[in-house]
Amino acid sequence: MSKGVLYDGNRCIGCRSCQVACKSWNRNPAEDTTNKGGYDNPPRLSATTFTTVRFREVDHNGKFHWAFAKTQCMHCLHPACEGACPVGALKRDKDTGAVVYDDGRCFGCRYCMVACPFGIPTFEWDDPLPWIRKCTFCSGRLDGGLEPACVTACPTGALQLGEREDLITEARARISASPDKYVDHVYGEKEAGGTSWLYILPVPFEEMGFPALGEEAPTENPHIAMRTLPYYAGGVVVLMAGFYWLTKRKQKLSHTGDKHGKKEGVAK
């Protein structure tokens, strides 16, 4: 069992308290932004913004929706970033489900950013000593028995912390209680092998910028490749040594009786 958070797009009012709480808990400075016509502000995640709310006007089933979606790290059950990181700087906490980053190990290769199917980790591009930054699931607060800062701040209960399994049941119940208000899908239940953060929305997920992902965990294929690698390497050693022995032997056989043959061995 691990923790999760359920985001309910029908309860969210787009107040951005979660963003503010996140900024202050993580001591992230405000960003200078310019108005480009949208409501998203800041427009996207950055090294100082771990969560933002997306605002979209969506026409769905002949009805106009002013729809919101909070974005942050999804805290995958099989995180691509964890599988990518060569030094284990990103790890999933088995108890809480939080995928946490340890800058004491990182050396800034940014493979996690490339690997993440949700496009979450960010980088301190303007710092000569840069680190990776992303939502921590407030793992320190979780360990201390508190809710994540954003969940605490949410005034409408659009964010709900709980055991992941219970939240899936709860999400299903809400969808079946009012099927006309929700799209019949719990985003994060199966996506990319499952995520700790779960979403139910009144509009299709693609409309809100959620990537359409399959159920396969991205770590699956590389794990197979890495597991077979030692056997593969062993095979190459045996094969090369074998061929070397064969060619040397052939050479020796053809050289017997031929006295001025080169010194046998490493020569050429």
Binding site: E82, G83, A84, C85, P86, V87, G88, A89, R105, C106, F107, G108, C109, R110, Y111, F123, E124, L129, P130, W131, I132, T219, P222, H223, A225, M226, L229
Partner: peptide, 26 residues
């Protein structure tokens, strides 16, 4: 040039994530 903190590249020698293809590459 590309790595954020290349002077910590030696971390790869002590912090092993054997599942990472980049670990192998490094």
């Amino acid at each position: 040039v590309d790595l954020g903190q290349p002077w910590y590249i030696w971390h790869i020698m002590i912090n092993w994530n054997i599942h990472s293809p980049l670990f192998e590459v490094g």
